[in-house]
Amino acid sequence: MSIEPHKPIADYVAANARLDADAMLKPFAADAVFLDNGKRFEGHNQIRKLFEEEVIAVKAIFTPDTIRNENGQIVVEGPAHGNFPGSPLRFTYRFTLQADEIRTLEVTL
């Protein structure tokens, strides 16, 4: 699926496919908030730790198959595959963008 109109999202998804923590973090604002199934991570240091411990460690790769605008957010859905129980699992990613950066990302099952 093409998500090119939303460059920060496309960059994040491409970096996730390579399991590259530095590149995954790059599209996020310095004070971004990442909500992961009820857990809150704020700023680059906490978000990097999340990527390293809960994404890269289990090789979780998100493969978007739908995208839509909803109430000012970009909603991207699709499965994530990796070395974790229940793989693949279907996730919903809700991105809030500002000035070509990811300000907030909420991930839910």
Rank of each mutant, 00 (worst) to 15 (best):
V107W: 05
E106D: 14
I67G: 04
G78M: 06
S87T: 15
P27L: 03
E70I: 10
L89N: 08
E70F: 13
P8A: 12
A99E: 15
T66P: 11
D100Q: 14
G38A: 11
E53Q: 14
D65S: 10
R68Y: 07
E70Q: 15
A23R: 12
F41R: 07
R68I: 11
A60N: 03
I102V: 14
N16M: 12
A14V: 05
R94V: 04
A17T: 01
L89A: 10
E4F: 09
N69R: 13
D31L: 09
R94D: 08
Q98W: 02
D100S: 13
L89F: 02
F91N: 08
V55S: 07
L97D: 08
I56H: 09
I56K: 14
L50N: 08
P5T: 03
Q73N: 14
A60Y: 02
A57Y: 06
E4M: 11
D65V: 10
M24C: 08
E54S: 13
E52H: 02
K7W: 04
L97V: 06
K59I: 00
N69K: 14
A10Q: 14
H44P: 01
D65C: 07
A15Q: 12
V55C: 08
D100H: 06
A17S: 13
H6F: 15
R68K: 15
T108Y: 01
E53L: 10
A60P: 01
I47G: 03
P5L: 05
V58E: 13
A80Q: 10
T66W: 08
P64V: 10
V75T: 06
L89D: 05
F34S: 03
T96I: 04
A29H: 12
R103K: 15
I61Y: 11
R68P: 07
G82K: 07
N71Q: 15
K49A: 14
R18W: 00
L109R: 12
A23T: 00
A30K: 02
E42W: 01
K59T: 02
R48N: 05
I56C: 09
I9V: 13
I9Q: 09
T92K: 09
A23Q: 12
A32F: 02
L97W: 07
E106H: 10
P27T: 11
M24V: 10
L19R: 01
E106G: 10
R90A: 13
P8D: 09
N16I: 05
N71K: 15
I74D: 06
A60L: 12
D22G: 09
G43V: 05
M24P: 03
I47P: 04
Q98N: 12
L25R: 00
F51E: 06
G86S: 11
E70H: 14
A80I: 01
E53A: 11
G86H: 09
L97R: 05
A15L: 04
